[in-house]
């Protein structure tokens, strides 16, 4: 069990180092929660993303709320969420007030071009681990390929892909594997 201050600081750190959307913070969450603190298993982290994707609200906040609640109930959910948004509040307000020019500074642009490559490399590395653990048989492979097809070929929204996977898993579990 984490104290509220720990939760706030943990998500403050994650908010501070997340560049991009909710998926960009996956490598950070894995490192902090699965590897270092062992609060979650890798599978549970994936489940949180599935639920965060299909529920109202942006994924990053949903995942933070979820983890906070599991650690310390409602108070934990609030502490984690506030921690997550605090860096944005500080940095964006500062930029909007005085630092608009900072965004057009050459060196800032260079640094962010580098960071974006780093984010892609980190996500790719997490994917290798996830793939090894979760795509183990033909059924898993089929779900993956179907999901890719729905997303890529039919441009279906991510929400529907998750719901479709959930329903088919339930049906297969109930009627085929018996």
């Amino acid at each position: 069990m984490q104290s509220l201050k720990d939760l706030f600081l943990l998500f403050f750190k994650i908010g501070l180092f997340t560049f991009g959307g909710g998926y960009a913070m996956l490598p950070l969450l894995k490192d902090e929660l699965v590897v270092k603190r062992r609060l979650l298993s890798e599978d549970e982290l994936l489940d949180l993303y599935a639920i965060g994707q299909c529920t109202p609200g942006i994924i990053a906040i949903n995942v933070a709320t979820f983890i906070g609640y599991r650690q310390a109930r409602l108070k934990g959910a609030v502490a984690a969420t506030l921690g997550m948004v605090f860096p944005s509040l500080l940095i964006i307000t500062l930029i909007a007030m005085v630092l608009k020019q900072y965004m057009y500074n050459r060196y800032v642009t260079y640094a962010f071009a580098g960071i974006r490559i780093g984010v892609v490399a980190l996500i790719a590395s997490v994917l290798v681990d996830l793939w090894r653990k979760n795509i183990r048989n033909y059924a898993d492979g089929t779900v993956f390929v179907l999901a890719v097809a729905l997303l890529g070929v039919f441009s279906l929204s991510a929400v529907w892909v998750v719901i479709a996977a959930a329903v088919s898993a339930l049906l297969i579990g109930e009627y085929v594997r018996k």
Binding site: G21, A24, A50, Q53, L130, A147, V148, V162
Partner: peptide, 18 residues
Amino acid sequence: TMLEGIRPAVIALIVFAG
């Protein structure tokens, strides 16, 4: 069962985000 079945689909979502 449902959550286990979703995991490969979530990996596909992460591939696309990447």
